[in-house]
Design a protein around this nucleic acid. Structure first.
Lengths: 244, 244
DNA sequence: GTCCGCAATATGTCCGGACAAATTGACGGG
DNA sequence: CCCGTCAATTTGTCCGGACATATTGCGGAC
């Protein structure tokens, strides 16, 4: 038993995972980067194979290790390179920086059937509807037109929202004091409708990139939904995954 | 027992997951989209709780369902398009769950001026050209058409490439033994050309989602470039991030 | 020396059981 | 009617065991 772990109420697999994570970072597994077998880890930490596998599953989902039946578990260098960007929520919101967002508050609304199915919200739920346009610089050509739906419970915080480079969600989080639980983002290609065509100065049926984001707090409640339409020839969603 | 499963050597949790995935897409869980409890699913499929939980774990990692202790499991999805999951970094290099990728090797080619500008490669550089189609199931409707360009230096490893659960890039990395330095990914909306229209069975000028990925090794050499075109109404690029 | 086959090894799949912790709704007291 | 308590429900954690399947290396046949 190497554990030496305190009596935290953290699950045991999390403690094992943390210990292995530190060992990997310290290079304790040497050149081949071969980890001990599951049964060895069971003995070492004094836990069952279930707990060891759950810990290894976490590390694998983080991209730290690679496992192969019959062969063993090794440190995965590819995963280390990719780890940082996707574990950082700020990275997801990164594209907002450097552009300017101006919006109008359109007032309260109730989610209809079709809209609810598209956005993943409950039909009949109540929201505050905002509409805005994002530009690269003040007065510049429009890059995207965005509809924002904010949970009616948070309507009191809407007057405090300010246009600028900070996202509405960041302002809401700070103002209302909730904790972020999960962000879902869907990107698809659709044909421009009349609204997008007019706002972006493109022709109808032109391809636009639609980004739907659903923000949830820690309890799973949907805090905000945003639907952005970007002109296909003026915008590319770009992810750069760097080493170092 | 609802299984009706065949004598496939597919794991049971995968069969359960596939069945639940289809049921979710068909809307079998009604208004609240509340799934049966784990023990109910155990009885229904005649499997242990381990198998049910493994199946639900897959669906959760795909972003299809949301689970809360004490509360239950609910459908958490928008529409029934194929979603490329990005819940963790390991999945960035994985194929979309439940889809099939087949490709042909078209032979060597030299990068032209216009293409080089679009893809970020050097004009006049030499590549091996592969072309593939991704479907939801063998013989099913096409979801995406993909062009892959592999550095001519690695042409010797191409005959060993196989369609299956691993990406071409993963196979190349293991076969040639290089380390990844950087991945760039651009996502944009474009209008379908004649090639995409024919391959995806859609009309010309229909919106398609184009994903361009550039893989570099540690020394900065471009190893592989892939250009995928996804039918706008059949595919959404989806990512979700659990925070804590 | 080379190649084939086998056995040892390691992870994957699956079972049954047990208890813990969070949620929800019903019940009862104020 | 409001609110706190409690019990039932449901998912999370954890155990021990069993067999399946992919990989690897060893030794024997040639």
């Amino acid at each position: 038993m190497v554990t030496a772990k305190a009596r935290t109420n953290e699950p045991r697999y999390a403690q094992v995972a943390a210990d292995l994570r530190a060992a990997i970072a310290a290079g304790d597994f040497g050149e081949g980067a071969q980890l001990p077998t599951e049964s060895t880890l069971c003995d070492r930490y004094g836990v069952s194979r279930f707990t060891v596998r759950e810990a290894l599953r976490r590390l694998q989902s983080e991209g730290l290790i690679r496992r192969r039946r019959g062969s063993g578990t090794v440190v995965d260098t590819i995963g280390q390179v990719l780890r940082q960007p996707l574990s950082d929520v700020a990275e997801l919101l990164q594209y907002a920086a450097g552009s300017v967002f101006n919006f109008d508050v359109l007032g309260p609304m109730v989610m209809g059937e079709a809209q609810a199915a598209l956005l993943g919200a409950a039909p009949g739920s109540r929201w505050a509807h905002l509409s805005g346009i994002r530009t690269l610089s003040p007065g510049g050509p429009p890059v995207a037109v965005t509809d924002v739906y904010i949970n009616a419970d948070l309507a009191g915080h809407i007057p405090a929202l300010q246009p600028g480079s900070q996202t509405l969600f960041e302002q809401l989080s700070a103002s209302a004091g909730f904790q972020i639980g999960r962000i879902d983002q869907d990107i698809r290609a659709i044909a421009a409708g009349s609204r997008e065509a007019a706002a972006l100065a493109i022709s109808r049926r032109a391809p636009v990139l639609q980004i739907v984001r659903v923000y949830r707090d820690a309890s799973g409640r949907i805090v905000e939904i945003s639907v952005s339409a970007h002109a296909g020839d003026r915008f590319a969603y770009s992810m750069h995954i760097d080493h170092g």
